[in-house]
Design a protein around this nucleic acid. Structure first.
Length: 189
DNA sequence: GCTGCGATTTTCT
DNA sequence: GAAAATCGCAGCT
């Protein structure tokens, strides 16, 4: 499986394949452990209501970074991924810092290493991503080798923090990995 | 360790 | 004007 082919699939197809992949950006490398898919016909997607100034890059070529700002203080990083004509993206929710950990620590402050990129805004922060990186392809993404990926236990479940969206089980994470975010599993109703 | 709530700004209706 | 793809901290068990 080649990366370029994966990026032309619907995001919920591509998302689980990204688990275990490594993403290098500006001196820090993370191994992805948790992602969420957002598709064209998905009320939870920023692109659902059509193209706007904010979500424009979700409509552009796959393989770029879609960065948005939310809750007044957080950046979240997505990988644009969709078949021709169907806007979509994959939210990078969590990862394990495997290289450039000193740089990541500097950006995130005094937290446990396992928390450096545990959560979408933290991951973006650890990588040094902000709104100025929106739409760039200035990063390196390497899929996990097939045999490695086959050894990963992929878990799925409802997405986090959406008010809209029927609960599509489009959150994917590496089962049992300590860097997967947990948030408020008990509050889900 | 787990649960609940407030912060803060961009974007869209 | 309201909601949002969240996080950090306070307070309790």
């Amino acid at each position: 499986m080649v990366l370029a082919d994966l990026l032309d699939q619907r995001p919920e197809v591509t998302a689980p394949r990204l688990l275990g992949a490594t993403l290098s950006f500006d001196g820090v490398k993370v191994r992805l452990t948790e992602v969420e898919a957002y598709a064209a016909d998905d009320p939870g997607s920023h692109a659902f209501r059509g193209e706007t100034n904010r979500n424009r890059v979700m409509f552009g070529p796959p393989g770029r970074l879609y960065v948005y700002f939310t809750y007044g203080m957080h950046h979240c990083a997505n990988l644009v991924c969709h078949p021709e004509g169907e806007p979509g993206a994959i939210l990078l929710r969590a990862g394990e810092v495997v290289d450039g950990i000193e740089v990541a620590r500097q950006r995130r402050g005094p937290v446990r290493d396992v928390d450096l990129a545990r959560g979408p805004a933290r991951l973006a922060s650890a990588l040094g991503i902000d709104l100025t990186m929106n739409g760039t392809a200035d990063f390196e993404l390497d899929l996990a080798p097939a045999e490695t990926w086959a050894g990963i236990e992929v878990a799925t479940g409802p997405r986090v923090g959406l008010r809209l969206a029927p609960e599509r089980p489009w959150r994917f994470w590496v089962s049992g990995d300590p860097t997967v975010s947990r948030y408020r599993p008990a509050k889900a109703l």
